[in-house]
Design a binder for these strands. Sequence first.
DNA 1: GTGAAAGCGCTAACAG
DNA 2: CTGTTAGCGCTTTCAC
Lengths: 336, 336
Amino acid sequence: MNLTRRVTIRDVAARAEVSIATVSKVINGRYGVASDTIERVERVIADLGYEASLAAQSLRNRRTNVIGVLVADFEPFSTEVLKGAADAIRGTGFELVVYSAGGRVGEHVGWERRYLSRLSGTLVDGAVIVTPTVTDINYGAPIVAVDPHTGPSEMPTVDADNWHGACLAVGHLLDLGHRRIAMISGRPDLQSAQKREGGYRATLTAADIPVDESLIQLGAYDPDVARQAAYSLLTMPDRPTAMFAANDLSAITAMEVAAELGLRVPDDLSLVGFDNIPESALATPPLTTVAQPIRQMGQHAMELLVRLIREEPVETNHIRLTTQLVERQSTRAAGR
Amino acid sequence: MNLTRRVTIRDVAARAEVSIATVSKVINGRYGVASDTIERVERVIADLGYEASLAAQSLRNRRTNVIGVLVADFEPFSTEVLKGAADAIRGTGFELVVYSAGGRVGEHVGWERRYLSRLSGTLVDGAVIVTPTVTDINYGAPIVAVDPHTGPSEMPTVDADNWHGACLAVGHLLDLGHRRIAMISGRPDLQSAQKREGGYRATLTAADIPVDESLIQLGAYDPDVARQAAYSLLTMPDRPTAMFAANDLSAITAMEVAAELGLRVPDDLSLVGFDNIPESALATPPLTTVAQPIRQMGQHAMELLVRLIREEPVETNHIRLTTQLVERQSTRAAGR
DNA sequence: GTGAAAGCGCTAACAG
DNA sequence: CTGTTAGCGCTTTCAC
């Protein structure tokens, strides 16, 4: 582009005709600098638009006043968590760095360990990890997991009551008179997905409906896999009249597949999702779903993390927020 | 939390009984290391779960393979841009760091200069800046601005056709027979807001309707200010029958104010927003608005940036995407 | 009050 | 093939 190099502390020192040590003292408000020196240095800093390099500062200092949020990718769930985290960090004096390898690690288990290793110790004072696959990480710096793979462990966590949410979803379909209720399941390695499937099974069983294993197809939270699952469910001989998807993205994919097959939602197929991402309300028809208070989960995670970093007392390490059914237009009473 | 320190290259070297230089060579795949040494070091790295510190690596190297996205805050617009940027970075080999001071700098003009100064030169190879207030920044590293304050300058930019979008919005209201059309304007220092107001004025003038300055109230993209603006517009003697807000958030605020005043949307007041953030479809009633292809703006910005970093040829430095009217249920033909 | 020097974790010459 | 050394930008003793 051009040759303008970054302004460093040396440049400031040279222009102000002092040593870099003095500049550093001025920046950090240390005592023992003459007031006219302070003034001169500050003017040069303003002139040059100098700002300390985060990398260099982090490397030298133990505390950085930066908090990391680690995400596997930027999708609707993680960006909602982000908004909540940003809400909660406001006014704390911490800055926020979000880090993602952008699908480079993909589904690889343990991405969070890599990221954490790269940022922690240097660069951030603590981290919120979104949907981590392991929770036995331990790096000195405080860490809070949002919607972790494994259930509450040693690590501080924030999650939603997934089991109860699934019960609400399936209960709603049962109330509408549906009996053949299929499920597109989530990633089997994720605790939240297991809970959602568990709630589905338990609710059916409680209603004296035997669980038909052929009605449960793996969606894996992956559009392509979910598409397969929806297709095979909707083309089976005695196809289900209703479907519960382990997340909204899968439900929306199922909606597309239904449309391609000439099936109308909700007339021919009732559909319930999970998550209540903004996109679910934009679907045609708007998707009935289970709302997780995603943004609040981000807020609670960040608040907890800040307390841990500041070594303030915390009541509990495991926060569980309640889920809620949001009835929109993708469900209807069973036809026949 | 606990005492487990970060694993550094020294720890690896000690455990593998080699020098840190050798470990570095193994990590970076440099030639000149015995194959059994490589194997031993790699095993230790795996055992210890070592990963190079981003801060230290960045400080030493010119290239970091990390791209920065700088945002003033995480709100709907910036998170949509983020999703697009993430889409585009996939498969490029770059990692993504998003940086925000979380409102710490607030509305302070020049936040992007601060951030850039903190990250650029070290830490990132280039940056996408979302809604910057200045575009005369120059730091050696390539920078692409999304929806910048000032119009296309030297700096590569990606924006939407705001003027045309405003024409669409006001034209729609005119088509519905409205004549008293108010506007809640945006931040006067932002180019996009000026264009939106310009389009509003031009469309009215083209329809031979004199612009009534009392019908234009400052919203400043700020909920509190927008609330004030909506209130004063809706309580004036001869109140407008329609309103165009410079962004969706202001429009939604206006909707709330209307409800508080006992005014029904769209029966008593037609309302058009701008941006088409997901939340606009969730409003009651769903908001008619002008869609900016925000996500695509993020994609284009990232693609352009990657090309600039790789010093590949680019056709143009200024990308302008077209806006589109999305008719929902907050507008209706003028009553009387 | 001020500056010289060491060192945070890492990589890139350069010797051995 | 391997290790020693210098230095990225910064902060912090510790002399002067």
